[in-house]
């Protein structure tokens, strides 16, 4: 099986998977009770208005027509209009996604680097006090809800010590004067960025630490590692070889953790009033803004599928034997 065929097959499978997820999302949202129009009723709209809104949004069409229309639009890059924001969905989601990415990606990557190194440190010192007790903090933090870590950091570093602000992306003056991406260049942004960033790092150090520790323990007992030790190779050289082999499981969980961090981000963003997709998701759920919710779920699904695809590709670079799958 050629490498190219392997890539092509994985790509086709990934595309089909995204298509299936999109279909599932569409129908699961339509099967939920209530829609944007019923919400209007509670807000005092007349039944005639609600009917008009249903008609305007095509909610009175048969569900298969709605599905075909939606899928056709998605394929042409049209995710529809947000009902509450009166803007194209992509225009609504893009800035929120940008704000979330700038928090989640560096945060999770930093957590993986630090967590992997810490896990390797634990794994290479079996039986030591560090190995015995050093695993306790990541376990405690890993099983603590994300938002609680955020609240704890706010209580210590904002309320008690007053070192950092308790939330928001920047001060009101800076947000007022810096619409768009320029805000990332301001000092106020980075000042506000610190606590949510540290929250993400602390929370997501847990996975790589545990995975890397277990992996290192396993790898350093393999024959090649024993042989290298017998050969008298330097400590750092052996460490590098062990890390190279032990890193595969960590790389495997990276895209999944990055994607699941979105669910944690919802609460972290709310605690820190961070205007990202978590907050947008919440606002949209309250408003039953289905086009926005569907699109965001789809983005998250694509993220996981694409991440797994990239990991598979990356595997073939680290360990070329993986390309012989099926033989």
């Amino acid at each position: 099986m050629s490498q190219l065929y392997y890539y092509a097959r994985r790509m086709v499978v990934s595309i089909l998977l995204v298509f299936a997820i999109a279909t599932f999302l569409f129908f699961s949202f339509r099967l939920m009770p209530g829609d944007y129009a019923t919400l209007l009723l509670q807000q005092g709209a007349s039944p005639e208005q609600v009917e008009a809104v249903r008609e305007a949004w095509g909610l009175d069409e048969p569900i298969y027509i709605q599905y075909l229309t939606w899928m056709g639009n998605m394929l042409t890059g049209n995710a529809g209009m947000s009902r509450q924001f009166s803007k194209p969905v992509i225009d609504v989601v893009a800035p929120a996604l940008r704000n979330s990415m700038i928090l989640a990606l560096p945060g999770v990557l930093t957590a993986f680097v630090i967590g992997s190194l810490y896990g390797a440190l634990l794994g290479t010192n079996p039986g030591s006090t560090l190995e015995k007790y050093g695993i306790i903090p990541p376990n405690i933090i890993g099983t603590t809800p994300d938002f609680f870590i955020g609240i704890l950091l706010i209580a210590i570093f904002s309320s008690a010590l007053g070192w950092f602000p308790s939330g928001s992306i920047a001060s009101i003056e800076v947000v007022t004067n810096n619409p768009g991406w320029q805000i990332y260049l301001t000092e106020s942004f980075w000042y506000h960025y610190t606590l949510p960033f540290v929250t993400v790092v602390i929370k997501y150090m847990y996975y790589p630490t545990l995975v890397m520790r277990g992996s290192v323990v396993e790898v350093r007992n393999q024959e090649f590692a024993v042989y290298q030790r017998l050969l008298g190779l330097g400590r750092w050289t052996r460490f590098r070889h062990v890390m190279e082999h032990a890193s595969l499981p960590v790389i495997t969980v990276l895209p999944a953790v990055t994607a699941t961090s979105i669910s944690g981000l919802v609460l972290i963003e709310i605690v820190f009033n961070w205007p990202g997709i978590g907050q947008l998701l919440l606002t949209s759920v309250f408003a039953r803004d289905t086009p926005v919710i569907q699109f965001m779920f789809l983005i998250i699904a694509i993220w996981i599928v694409a991440g797994n695809f990239l990991v598979d590709i990356f595997y073939t670079i680290i360990d070329p034997r993986i390309t012989i799958e099926g033989e």
């Binding site: 309320s159 308790s166 928001s168 001060s171 009033n273 205007p275």
Partner: peptide, 20 residues
């Protein structure tokens, strides 16, 4: 007047307490 969006009441309370 500046209206600022807060989806969580406790976060808004903290901002109020710190003077934001």
């Amino acid at each position: 007047v500046t209206f600022r969006g807060y989806s969580d009441r406790q976060t808004a309370r903290r901002a109020f307490e710190e003077g934001s």
